[in-house]
């Protein structure tokens, strides 16, 4: 054996290391795989459990309110006066919807312009500035948005409007508009980029200007994606809490204008959740508002899924 082996360092032998390793290699292995597979699966299921638990726990407290207050009296009641047993959430619902609407009114055109710029007009250098800027905008904590709104925007509105405080839906709408920009821009840009180049080139080849192509071909083709960006921005705006609470003025009435103190579902919850005893109707009413927010958000997610299906169907057709 050894004679044959001379000069052949590379060849494994039946004895020595080769054999030792080989025996191990062919040995039985312990299968820890099943344990890991179980853990991975359990982690995934944890997500399902979490969302279910949130629905159940929030829903349960909300249901406790509805044993004392009729759901319609809650949803459409115009007066919020827990001390008198009145739990009308309409002022907050109106405030949330109005602030969100205003945010989209300002944020969507601005964001769409930003997305078009990034997707179609910006030079690589400009992109290198814009992209991190948008990421930073997304990273600023909402209390900081609130603080800047409170110390810069609210006084600015006060000075230029002649109103007493400057608090109100206008300030909230502007702050929210800035806060939804990153969400909207990045999703809308993706949608614009997903439009197949040949469609765009086809239009340009017909002698249309760049802008005509963008307005008449690109945006319509990317529309489902842009709509999804809008819906997700809406979800973000309606759930935003701290920044809004800091610039709204927090008056639980249906606001008579854009520059008067108002409240939203979120701002009311954050204000009251620490100061109402658990199980009291006033506390349960906060959970009912939370449930309302939850249902709105889930509804929006389902809407996004629907538009996404449409978007993929559209792309398939385009091909």
């Amino acid at each position: 054996m050894s004679a044959l082996n001379t000069g052949r360092t590379a060849v494994p032998t039946q004895t020595g290391v080769g054999a030792a390793v080989r025996t191990r290699l062919r040995g039985r292995r312990r299968d820890t795989g099943a344990i890991w597979r179980g853990l991975f699966f359990a982690s995934a299921i944890f997500l399902v459990i979490s969302i279910a638990a949130i629905l159940v726990m929030v829903g349960r407290q909300a249901a406790a309110l509805f044993t004392q207050v009729r759901p319609l009296a809650f949803l459409f009641g115009r007066v919020w006066a827990p001390e008198h047993g009145l739990y009308g959430a309409l002022p907050f619902l109106v405030g949330s919807l109005a602030a969100t609407g205003l945010a989209l009114l300002i944020g969507v055109p601005l964001g769409l312009a930003g997305a078009i710029y990034l997707a179609k007009l910006a030079t690589p250098r400009a992109q290198r500035v814009m992209r991190p800027a948008i990421e930073l905008l997304a990273g600023i904590p909402s209390v900081v948005y609130g603080w800047v709104g409170l110390t810069a925007l609210v006084p600015f509105i006060r000075r230029h409007s002649g109103h007493v405080t400057g608090f109100g839906l206008l300030a909230a709408g502007v702050v929210l508009a800035v806060m939804v920009l990153p969400t909207f821009i990045s999703l809308a840009e993706d949608a614009l980029r997903a439009v197949p180049q040949d469609i765009e080139h086809g239009s340009l080849a017909l002698g249309t200007t760049r802008w005509q192509t963008i307005a008449h071909v690109l945006i319509p083709a990317a529309w489902p994606g842009i709509a999804a960006a809008g819906i997700l921005s809406m979800a973000r705006a309606i759930g935003e809490t701290m920044a809004v609470q800091m610039v709204l003025g927090n008056s639980p009435v249906i606001p008579a204008g854009l520059i008067v103190p108002a409240s939203t579902l979120t701002s009311e919850i954050v204000l009251e959740m620490g100061s109402t005893p658990q199980g009291s109707p006033a506390n349960n009413a906060l959970f009912a508002m939370g449930l309302l927010l939850l249902l709105i958000s889930l509804g929006l997610i389902i809407a996004v899924r629907a538009t996404r299906k449409e978007a993929t169907a559209g792309v398939r057709q385009a091909h």
């Binding site: 290391v17 030792a20 390793v21 191990r24 290699l25 040995g27 292995r29």
Partner: peptide, 14 residues
């Protein structure tokens, strides 16, 4: 080798 149960450093090196 590592994944088939060899963990001895010297054996692995060889």
């Amino acid at each position: 080798p590592r994944h088939h149960g060899v963990s001895n450093r010297a054996l692995l090196a060889e």
